[in-house]
């Protein structure tokens, strides 16, 4: 059993609009048999945090193209993307590039 994981989630660039305009979320992911990875986090966000229009945030099993993801302030493309295993106190940022100019 993996212990619960506390992570800090941040939504910006307009992505926060899908979360009632709330930008920062401190959440604790419950303990489960396997370690938490980004793929499961996206499912969890969709079930527990997303307020509307899930298709504007997730598509298939990943984020909608045009939404940037940073894990501890680094591009998730450098961190293994969906396979990245979350650690306690990780900081995950989602920034939409699709709003405004």
């Amino acid at each position: 059993m993996a212990a619960p994981v506390a992570v800090h989630l941040e939504f910006g660039g307009g992505a926060e609009l899908l979360f009632d305009g709330v930008k920062e979320h401190h959440v604790t992911l419950p303990s489960q048999s396997e370690p938490w990875d980004m793929k499961q986090l996206l499912v969890w966000i969709q079930r527990n945090l997303l307020k509307e229009r899930p298709e504007l945030f997730v598509q298939g099993d990943t984020v909608r193209p045009g939404i940037l993801v940073l894990i501890n302030d680094a591009d998730w493309e450098l961190m293994g993307e969906l396979d990245y295993q979350l650690l306690d106190q990780d900081n995950i940022v989602f920034i939409s590039t699709l709003h405004g100019g």
């Binding site: 910006g12 660039g13 307009g14 609009l17 709003h99 405004g100």
Partner: peptide, 9 residues
């Protein structure tokens, strides 16, 4: 950390 506004028209 630039200050910008992000809402669609």
């Amino acid at each position: 950390k630039l200050d910008y506004f992000s809402t669609e028209c």
